[in-house]
Simulated scan of single mutants.
Amino acid sequence: MTVLILGLILFLGPHSVRIVAEPWRTQMLHRLGEKPWKGLYSLVSLIGFALIIWGYGLARYNPVVLWQPPVAMRHIASLLTLFSFILLTAAYVPSNSIKARLRHPMILGVKLWAFAHLLANGMAADLVLFGAFLLWAVLDYRAARERDREQSISYGQGKLMPSIVAVVIGTLLWAAFAFWLHRWWIGVAPFGG
C-alpha cells in the first residue's frame, strides 16, 4: 500500500497546486517559465502515475476486503463510467454545450469515475485509490469554479452538433475500454469473459 500512497502523492500533489497554492504556482511559472514548469509537472505526475499502477497491482496480491458490494453495484458503476467517459470527452470537444453548462467536465468525469469504482469495489486499496481521486475531484472542482468567478470566465452557450460528437465519441471510448482495454490494462473484465 505504501507504493500506491506514494504514487497518489506524486500524481495528485502537482494536480492539487491550483487548489492549495495558486499564488505559489503563478510565481513558479514566472520564475521557471511555462515549458520547464510543465515539464517538471509532467515528469512528477508520470512517476506518480507509474507508482499508482504498480502499487495498486501489488495491493491486489494481498487484498484487504472491507466489504462485498452487491452485484447491482457493478451495473450502476458501468452506467456511471459511461457518463464519465462522455464528460471526459466533452472537455476536449470545442464548442459543446456540455462543457458550456458544466464548465469543468473533466473534473466531473473523474469524480463520477472514482465514485463508480468505490461503489463496485470493496478492498482497502480501492478505498485509498478511488477515495483519493474522488476527494481531489471534489476539491479541484470547487477551486476551479471559484477561479471562474474571480476571473469572470464565461463558457458561452455551446452548440448541439459538438455536443452530439462528444456523446458519440465518449460512448465509443467507454465501449472500447469496458469491453476490451480494461481487461488488458487493469486485468479485470467489467462485463466478464
Rank of each mutant, 00 (worst) to 15 (best):
F115C: 02
A120N: 03
T2F: 15
I52Q: 11
V64R: 09
I47G: 10
K35L: 11
D148R: 04
I86C: 02
I9W: 10
H75V: 13
F133M: 14
L12D: 05
W136H: 14
A166E: 02
R18H: 12
L102D: 00
V3M: 12
A100H: 01
H182V: 13
S84H: 05
A100E: 01
L51N: 13
I86V: 15
S154G: 14
R103E: 00
L108D: 00
D140P: 01
A125C: 04
R145E: 09
P36W: 08
F85G: 09
G192K: 14
A77D: 05
G57H: 11
L181R: 06
V110P: 03
S78Q: 03
V188C: 00
D126G: 07
G55C: 12
A166Q: 05
W174A: 06
M106Y: 10
Y155W: 15
W174H: 15
A90P: 13
Q157W: 02
L181H: 04
A100D: 00
V20N: 00
E22D: 14
Q27M: 06
M1P: 05
V3F: 06
A124T: 02
V71A: 15
F115S: 07
L112I: 13
W185L: 15
A116G: 04
W136I: 08
S152E: 11
L58T: 04
L172I: 14
A144T: 09
A143F: 14
L80Y: 12
T171A: 14
V65Q: 12
D126Y: 12
V188K: 07
V65Y: 02
V128A: 12
I53H: 02
P94I: 02
A143C: 12
A144K: 08
A90V: 09
R103A: 01
A120M: 07
N121I: 10
A120D: 04
H117F: 10
L118Y: 06
P63S: 05
L108I: 12
H30I: 02
V3H: 04
P69A: 03
F83W: 13
I153W: 10
R74T: 10
G7C: 12
R74F: 13
W113A: 05
I107E: 02
F115L: 15
G187N: 06
L40R: 00
L87I: 09
L135M: 14
E150F: 11
T81F: 01
G170P: 13
W180C: 03
A90N: 10
K35E: 06
Q27V: 03
A50Q: 05
F49I: 14
F179I: 07
S45I: 08
L43G: 11
I19Q: 02
V138A: 08
Y61E: 14
A50E: 04
G55E: 12
A175V: 15
R101L: 08
V128E: 08
F130S: 05
T26F: 04
H104L: 06
P94A: 06
G33W: 10
W174M: 09
S163V: 03
N121A: 04
W113C: 03
M161R: 15
L108C: 02
A137P: 02
L119P: 05
A90M: 09
G187E: 04
A137Y: 01
F130M: 07
K99G: 01
L32V: 00
A125N: 06
V71G: 00
F130A: 06
A114C: 10
V110M: 15
M161K: 15
L160P: 05
H15C: 07
A178Q: 15
L135I: 15
Q151T: 11
T2Y: 08
P70V: 11
F177H: 07
G131W: 09
G187C: 08
D126H: 12
G13Y: 09
